[in-house]
Design a protein around this nucleic acid. Structure first.
Lengths: 339, 339
DNA sequence: GACCAGTGATATACCGGTTTAGCACAGCGA
DNA sequence: TCGCTGTGCTAAACCGGTATATCACTGGTC
């Protein structure tokens, strides 16, 4: 019998059944080397004692932790509004849980701290792999991960990266679709408010948007860059509207930006969409919270999270990184463009 | 020398310095049993080799995992808007990180699943303790945690619970402050829209609000219960306003509810606050996103998270649960009540 | 009857730490 | 000189699994 309070180990099972730990391990892991009869008795004993494997012990002998790490690198204030991360976390966790793994989470403000956490997690053997997102230009995390050889998957990059798995996506079609939608509504002079240029995706979209606008309308569009903070977004918008030839529509780099502008449009004396059509890059419930509701490009974060996890697990199993595509973005047309 | 790619272990350090693993362990953990000189040489070697303790190995011999678990029990759709959880996670993680621990996270829809995850985590020795929040009435998680004797801290309960640490808070003062604020503005007939009654705090506030309203105005207030979903919140609001004597103000159980109502007030033909003053229980950036901005009771989620963590760590160290108070709620007056 | 292959188990090492028992030796007092 | 105590270290067990080498035994083949 196992004394109460202590949790049963395979040694307890072995004693119960009258075999060795090795035999128990084989039986519980469903591998050959034990007779069907013994296997059944071992499984029964495990069941009866309420045995569960100690992940810690298993990890030590596997040299694998069973966890995947995510460091959310955002200011605390932004985390309070930006729905993206919570949804990504939920998506990742769901996929990991299905594989019996778990998600280790940290929150920092700076990418340098994130790189430091990666180093610590890796050398302390807390994680088997990492999920990276929101890459900055010259992101120190990338160097840390490749230097240490940590298996990792990067979410939302334009193309493959050496040694890393990646969920890639091309912003081109989305940018064209945005301009198509606005052109159909009669817009010919469309500006863009970009997130901080330190974000790699913001920089990419800058070039992509200019190209798409040139192709569609033959002109070089106005673009401005701002932090995600409310007053800066408003200032950036005002700056664009104060232009001698103000744009009739603005594409914002995030749902939060667009929602902020729509929320305070009346105060600034802008009517949306009469004076200004507003379109958001990411969709979220926020877009349905304000009036007019915000037209946005939705994508399936759950699916992207699941894709990332499956690539990472493949890489952990095979040793070679893989690639897959981000879920396509679909335009959710709402009143901030159509009235 | 350590072969490249392999991460150094205390055995490597021991070999370098010419002592045994035991001596290295003593030196690195700053305990007596090694001379100052040997200790210095060991620390230098550890530094030089870039040694970091394997948390897995340490856990196995400690029988402690170094992680604390949180299961977020909310529907996926709600996680996309409700800012509370992301802020709580950030707060908990910050406090845990400061103690060298980490946060293990899972996401489920039902409390029963959460209880099952607790069981699994505990028997697999993945966590040392748990953080519980958003207790339901008759919550199966409570039974699971106490049955298994898992150290845990509960966030947001009215009073101590046997065997568990708790961060407690009394809604009374907040409810009175809400009514005071509205009474000052001339309101005498105030209703409340409650979150689902399965949530223990919703049920408590129901009774508390009725008592406060009776004490303040001598009348029994209208109260209705709804899910957090947008159309149901609107329906609940409409129901209250269709009352023969419609209330002039409504207190909503969450920021999301209040923001939803303010967002779509115009469509329903309500002017806020002229026809209806709106007050939200929780504050969040959402309240500043819509117009008019929503008056709300703010509390310091970061601080509450830190309190919870410190209680839990104390309990892990001493074996006895502790108690502390939630951070006080402060009224953030905005235009949804004052115009 | 000797040889061989396959089966089903045991014994044991191992993962990387922590911890305990024990040992060699120095310093000190009587 | 003997005994005693404390210091500084070694050796080895241990945590709970996994993995490998080995062995006894059975049955089939030539």
């Amino acid at each position: 019998m196992v004394e109460p309070g202590r949790r049963p180990t395979i040694a307890d099972i072995a004693r119960e059944v009258g075999v060795t730990k090795g035999a128990v391990s084989f039986a519980l892991n469903g591998r050959p080397g034990v007779s069907a009869d013994t296997r059944a008795r071992i499984l029964a004993a495990a069941e009866r004692l309420g045995w569960r494997p100690s992940t810690v012990a298993r990890s030590l002998s596997n040299l694998r932790s069973g966890s995947v790490g995510l460091v959310v690198t955002r200011t605390r204030s932004l985390l309070g509004v930006e729905p993206f991360y919570m949804r990504l976390i939920a998506g990742l966790e769901r996929a990991l849980h299905a594989d019996g793994r778990s998600l280790l989470l940290a929150v920092t403000e700076h990418p340098e701290d994130a790189a430091e956490i990666y180093r610590a997690w890796w050398s302390e053997r807390r994680v088997d792999g990492l999920v990276l997102t929101d890459l900055r230009t010259g992101d120190p995390r990338l160097a840390a991960v490749t230097d240490l050889g940590i298996p990792a998957v990067v979410l939302g990059v334009p193309g493959p990266l050496p040694g890393l798995s990646a969920v890639t996506g091309d912003d081109g079609p989305t940018l064209h679709a945005a301009l198509d939608h606005l052109a159909e509504l009669g817009h010919r002079w469309i500006a863009r408010v970009s997130g901080p240029s330190e974000f790699a995706h913001a920089a990419r979209r800058h070039a992509g948007f200019a190209a798409a606008h040139r192709a569609r309308f033959g002109t070089e569009p106005l673009q401005t860059t701002t932090r995600y903070v409310s007053d800066q977004v408003l200032a950036a918008t005002r700056e664009l509207l104060d232009h001698p030839e103000p744009p009739t529509a603005i594409v914002y780099d995030s749902d939060l930006m667009a929602v902020t502008v729509v929320g305070s449009a009346a105060e600034v004396g802008i009517r949306v969409p009469a004076d200004l059509a507003v379109l958001a890059w990411d969709d979220s419930p926020l877009c349905e919270l304000v009036r007019p509701r915000v037209t946005a490009f939705a994508h399936d974060i759950d699916a992207d999270g699941a894709t990332a996890v499956s690539l990472l697990l493949d890489q952990l199993a095979t040793g070679t990184p893989g690639h897959a595509a981000l879920s396509p973005r679909t335009l959710r047309i709402r009143e901030s463009t159509t009235g």
